[in-house]
């Protein structure tokens, strides 16, 4: 019961973990390369979500200090980190897609199973 309560209270963590598992599963099992890249993004996004959720506090404001305003702020550090993380994820995605384009030029498909068949036919 306690665990269930914990899960309900931290539903955003659960969402992140579920997304992570979906991403990982798709990435490892799908033959289509584009889907692999999409899955990679889902996986990254789930971690970003988790990170940002860690930094948020209930009722917190954006961490911009204004004269006279007081109260709780959301932790700015995860946000800053995740911005970097997104940049990294975008560059990896771009590189992966460019590889797919090149591979597509050779085989006329971006399905990994079909490529394996084509290669074994040779």
């Amino acid at each position: 019961m306690e665990i269930l309560q914990g899960i309900i209270n931290n539903y955003y963590y659960m969402a992140a973990i579920i997304l992570f598992v979906i991403g990982m599963h798709t990435m490892l099992t799908h033959a289509n390369m584009i889907k692999k890249v999409i899955a990679m993004n889902i996986m990254d996004a789930s971690v970003f979500l988790l990170f940002v959720a860690v930094g948020y506090r209930y009722g917190g404001q954006a961490p911009i200090i204004v004269e006279g305003a007081d109260g709780v702020y959301a932790n700015p550090l995860p946000g800053a980190l995740i911005l970097t993380g997104i940049v990294v994820a975008v560059s990896v995605t771009a590189y992966a897609l460019s590889l797919i384009v090149k591979i597509y030029r050779f085989y006329g498909t971006c399905d990994y199973d079909e490529i394996c068949e084509l290669r074994s036919d040779e």
């Binding site: 990435m27 990896v92 992966a96």
Partner: peptide
């Protein structure tokens, strides 16, 4: 080979970041 490497590495990095 590099696509395979990239995807598996990305999985590794995802795990690391988590």
């Amino acid at each position: 080979a590099s696509f395979k490497y990239l995807i598996l590495s990305a999985m590794g990095t995802g795990c690391y970041l988590l």
